[in-house]
Amino acid sequence: MTNDLPFSQACENNKAPILEKLQEIFNTPAKALEIGTLTGQHAVHFAKAMPHLQWQPSDHPEAADLCRPRLEQAALPNILPVVELDVSDANWPVETFQWAFSANTAHIMSWSEVEKMFRGIGERLSEDGAFCLYGPFNNQGEYSSDSNRRFDQHLRAQASHMGIRDLVDISALAESAGMTLAENHPMPANNRLLVFRPIH
């Protein structure tokens, strides 16, 4: 039963507006790596709507099993078996891809892990590819809303390494990894979809 599967209300709320943008960006047949598949709701929704993609789910070794029940139930031919991916490990289980996507990970990871995620993607992303990163972001130290300010305080109270990242820092990090922030789309609930493309 669907109701028995791991479920995220945030994923359910944001999957449609994210898909609308991804369909414009992930527009050619290729492999799409998802970092942080979690419950698998995004993977199933996106792979079903974009059958031209080979969707590669991945998650940290400690969390990779969470998405398996939903992916197995969906049984979509274009969803590849989930792989265990620790961004801090230099040896990623995926060698190359044209598209990459991650939602609500940058504020959960430590900054060191965010750096390694960008570096790992930058090293493996094809020249005509794109990396889409979804979540809340600050701009030059300013919160985009009171709800994001409260969320940031909640994160930092949970663990000192967590917190909403700043667009200035993220852009600089992307540049150091050979990518540039090409698009910045406003999304519902004071989130953004950032689109990074390789620097030529």
Rank of each mutant, 00 (worst) to 15 (best):
H52E: 14
W111M: 11
P61V: 03
T96K: 10
F196V: 01
H161Q: 13
L193M: 14
E20T: 15
H154I: 03
G163M: 05
E175T: 12
D86S: 03
I18C: 06
K48A: 12
Q98H: 14
F26I: 05
M117S: 08
N139M: 02
P57G: 04
L53H: 07
Q73V: 06
L33D: 03
L19W: 09
N91D: 12
G141M: 01
Q153Y: 05
M117D: 01
A10V: 10
P61Y: 11
S171R: 14
R192L: 13
P51T: 09
T2D: 13
W55A: 02
L167E: 14
A47Q: 01
P6A: 07
M1F: 05
M162D: 10
T105P: 07
G129Y: 03
G122L: 01
D4Q: 15
P93C: 03
E24N: 11
K31Q: 12
R70Q: 04
A174D: 15
P57E: 09
F7Y: 15
L66V: 12
E127D: 11
S160I: 03
D65W: 08
F137A: 04
L125G: 04
W111L: 09
L181E: 13
L155I: 07
S126Y: 09
N91R: 06
A177L: 09
A75Y: 00
C67G: 07
R192Y: 11
D146H: 13
H200I: 04
L76V: 03
E113Q: 14
R192M: 06
L173H: 13
N13G: 05
L71F: 00
L22I: 03
G141P: 06
W92R: 06
N14F: 04
